[in-house]
Nucleic acid binder design. Structure first.
Length: 308
DNA sequence: AATGGCTGCAACCGCAGGACC
DNA sequence: CGGTCCTGCGGTTGCAGCCAT
């Protein structure tokens, strides 16, 4: 049995919102939504998601219950569309316009650390929505950093890889919209399986971790020579070798304990995709040099050898 | 001035996972 | 405990405006 549609699609308007519709929705939410105390409620995970949940409970339900009224006023949008419009455009304190250099840096470093989890990234950027961040990455930052990488790659030629077709997880060929894409997503499929590990899902939200001060994955000097940072995002390593022990901040340790260090995006610049998962047993703090280093080094060297 | 390609962004679609029954 | 529904999220699309020719 299929899922019931979220709304009566035949009677629901789609497409761009008019100023009149915006005004109606805003006024409706101001009257019913902010009139309640959902914003003042303590967050469950982060104020962000909890607010949305409560908002949807109140507003979506109201929209359905008062569909006739809304119909009379001409606002015939489904709850999903209303939510999106509110979250991405109408809610207070939304920032529109250019991103600052600081925001650039945060987006890039978080993308390297956690990938395309736009809502988490956006939660670190007050006034920005996940949609904004996603669009900004896709239209500006990705190209900006790929451009840098291409320069570096041309300086050090390596085995050519063929990004012949973009193929998504469902096997669809996405070439027909490549004006939006850079044609690199399929590269990992040409690599030896050992180099492409499934990305581990995060074990829990990254609450309590400040990404403003988030350290990048540590690399030894020997690795840095090979696995250099072509996009210029990885700051100098924060660890020091101390009698074969790595000295790491508690923050990094905490981060790695519950998630994984994702090297995928730096890898992408070389056409690789790999994830190093430290989640299982040891914290990095307790790892010996020869435990950690070969683990990371293996992927790098395997990839490097293969590319020669 | 016309037109074709490119870009940016708002909005939609569909899936994953959790809540609920 | 399995089925259904709902919500939030990331991926994708459509289109308006800009720019080069």
């Amino acid at each position: 049995m299929g899922r019931a549609p979220c709304c009566d699609k035949a009677n629901v308007k789609k497409g761009p919102w008019s100023p009149e519709e915006d005004a109606k929705l805003k006024s409706y939410i101001e009257q019913h939504g902010t009139g309640g105390n959902w914003i003042a409620l303590p967050p469950k995970i982060g104020s962000y998601s909890f607010s949305y949940t409560v908002y949807m409970c109140v507003v979506c339900s109201c929209i359905h219950q008062t569909l006739d009224l809304l119909h009379e006023t001409g606002l015939r949008r489904c709850g999903k569309s209303c939510r999106l419009r509110w979250l991405n455009y109408l809610r207070p304190n939304i920032k529109h316009g250019g991103f600052s250099q600081e925001e650039d840096d945060i987006i890039c470093r978080m993308y390297i650390a956690i990938g395309s989890r736009w809502s988490i990234i956006a939660s670190q950027l007050p006034g920005r929505t996940d949609n904004d961040v996603k669009n900004y990455w896709n239209t500006k930052l990705k190209k900006k950093h790929l451009g840098k990488q291409k320069k570096e790659c041309s300086a050090a030629p390596r085995k050519k890889m063929q990004p012949t077709k973009e193929v998504d997880d469902r096997g669809n060929n996405n070439n027909n919209n490549d004006h939006h894409h850079l044609g690199i997503n399929g590269w990992h499929q040409q690599l030896p399986a050992v180099m492409y590990h499934e990305q581990e899902p995060m074990r829990r939200p990254l609450d309590g971790i400040s990404f403003f001060a988030m350290p990048s994955p540590p690399l030894m000097a020997s690795q840095q020579q090979i696995y250099s940072d072509p996009v210029g995002l990885v700051p100098p390593p924060i660890l020091q070798e101390d009698s074969s022990n790595f000295v790491l901040s508690n923050e990094l340790d905490e981060m790695l304990r519950f998630s994984s260090v994702k090297l995928e995006d730096t890898d992408y610049w070389y056409g690789m995709g790999s994830t190093v998962d430290f989640e299982k047993s040891n914290t990095l703090e307790s790892m010996q040099c020869d435990e950690l280093n070969p683990f990371m080094y293996h992927n790098v060297m395997t990839a490097y050898d293969w590319l020669q």
